[in-house]
Amino acid sequence: MKLVLATSNKGKVKEIKELCKHYEVIPYSELIDEFEIIEDADSFKENALIKARAVYKALNDKNVIVMADDSGISVDALDGAPGIYSARYGGESATDKDNLNKLINDIKEKDLQSSPAHYTAAIAIVADGIEKTVHGWMYGTAVTKAQGEGGFGYDPMFIPLGYDKTLGELDNEIKKKLSHRSKALYLASKILKNL
């Protein structure tokens, strides 16, 4: 079964490929030219649906299943920011490092060294006549010191509940078990089996 990902984010593609080994996982950019998708909804779920619908329509192939993920980190001390703006928190052309540094600085500006936080992953699946969404969450603490080289995005500043190391320091197998995306993909796999 061909599973087309509505993303060109290398970190997400790698993670989803590892978690969906039973499928032929292809980023949409290998099938058609990349194009801008305006994510203007106010929830992870709706933004994931926008991406999946746009790629499904652009592919114009009823024999593919498109999966889109919208995910991010929400920090309690910042009233849930960056939330749905996680990927562009440091500005439109910000790198992962820019976003990470901005979030660390924003927490420090509250005179804090850490804050409760959580990751959310919403996954949308769009196929011929089908639209489904699932969610996964991971709770923990956002800290103001980046630690570790593993993962991507905000991983070096997030310590999962029950651990004393950041996602940037933890072993990949542990991360897979804890990951918000893993939890959402597990639920998504149940939907895929029934398609």
Rank of each mutant, 00 (worst) to 15 (best):
A142Q: 13
G90A: 01
I123A: 03
Y89D: 12
L112W: 11
K145A: 09
K108F: 09
D106K: 02
G140S: 09
N99F: 05
G90F: 00
T144V: 15
M138R: 06
A121E: 06
Y119T: 00
G129K: 10
Y119W: 15
A127G: 12
L112N: 06
G90E: 04
A146T: 12
G129D: 04
D111Q: 07
K102D: 10
L103R: 05
K108Y: 13
S114N: 01
A146K: 05
K145G: 13
N105E: 14
S115K: 02
I107L: 10
D106H: 13
Y139V: 06
A122C: 07
D98F: 00
N99A: 09
I125C: 09
H135R: 11
G136V: 11
T133H: 06
V126L: 02
T133A: 13
A117T: 04
K97I: 12
Y89P: 08
A146C: 13
K108R: 15
V134K: 00
E109F: 05
D128F: 01
S115T: 08
K97Y: 15
T144G: 06
K97C: 08
L112P: 02
I125W: 03
W137S: 05
Y139S: 06
I130K: 11
K110M: 12
Y89S: 06
A122E: 12
G129A: 12
H135Q: 15
A121C: 08
M138I: 00
K132E: 14
H135P: 05
D128C: 07
T120N: 07
D128Q: 03
T95H: 06
K108V: 07
V143F: 09
A122H: 01
E92D: 11
P116E: 15
N99G: 12
Q113S: 08
K145N: 15
T144N: 14
D106G: 01
T144L: 07
G140Y: 02
S93H: 04
G129N: 07
T141L: 00
D128M: 00
T120M: 14
A117L: 05
D98G: 08
Y119E: 02
G91H: 11
D98Q: 01
L112G: 06
V126A: 01
V143D: 01
M138G: 07
